[in-house]
Amino acid sequence: MEVYTAMRHFADSWGLLVMALFFVGVVVSTLRPGAKSSANDAAQIPLKED
């Protein structure tokens, strides 16, 4: 039962911090100035014929 409590405390504190930092990183990487060209390239992948 102590393992569950320790994991619960970890998820409540550090897990939340890690998820918040990951979210901020995704938003920043999406909105950076050079992201438009890479996003357009990724959007065209399904339309390319091999």
Rank of each mutant, 00 (worst) to 15 (best):
M1W: 12
M1H: 14
M1L: 14
E2P: 01
E2N: 08
E2W: 03
V3F: 04
Y4M: 05
Y4N: 05
Y4I: 09
Y4A: 11
Y4E: 09
Y4W: 06
T5G: 01
A6G: 09
A6Q: 13
A6W: 02
M7A: 07
M7N: 11
M7Y: 04
R8Q: 12
R8C: 02
R8H: 07
R8V: 02
H9M: 09
F10E: 06
F10S: 03
F10T: 05
F10P: 01
A11Q: 12
A11V: 07
A11Y: 05
D12R: 11
S13I: 07
W14G: 03
W14D: 08
G15F: 07
G15R: 09
G15Y: 05
L16V: 15
L16G: 14
L16P: 01
L16H: 10
L17V: 15
L17K: 14
L17E: 13
V18K: 11
V18G: 04
V18R: 13
M19G: 12
A20S: 15
A20G: 13
A20C: 13
A20F: 10
L21K: 04
F22T: 15
F22H: 07
F22S: 15
F23R: 07
V24F: 13
V24Y: 06
V24R: 06
G25K: 02
V26K: 08
V26H: 03
V27S: 03
V27A: 14
V28S: 07
V28P: 00
V28D: 03
V28C: 10
S29K: 10
S29Y: 14
T30V: 13
T30Q: 11
T30P: 00
L31W: 04
R32A: 12
R32I: 06
R32Y: 06
R32L: 08
P33F: 02
P33T: 04
G34P: 03
G34R: 09
A35K: 01
A35V: 00
A35Y: 00
K36D: 11
K36S: 13
K36L: 13
K36C: 01
K36N: 06
S37F: 03
S37P: 00
S38C: 01
S38R: 14
S38P: 00
S38D: 07
S38A: 05
A39N: 04
N40G: 01
N40Q: 13
N40W: 06
N40S: 10
D41W: 12
D41I: 03
A42H: 06
A42F: 14
A42D: 08
A43Y: 09
Q44P: 00
Q44H: 11
Q44W: 08
Q44A: 15
I45Q: 13
I45G: 00
P46I: 10
L47Q: 09
L47A: 09
K48C: 00
K48S: 06
K48V: 10
E49V: 14
E49M: 09
E49G: 01
E49W: 08
E49A: 08
D50I: 06
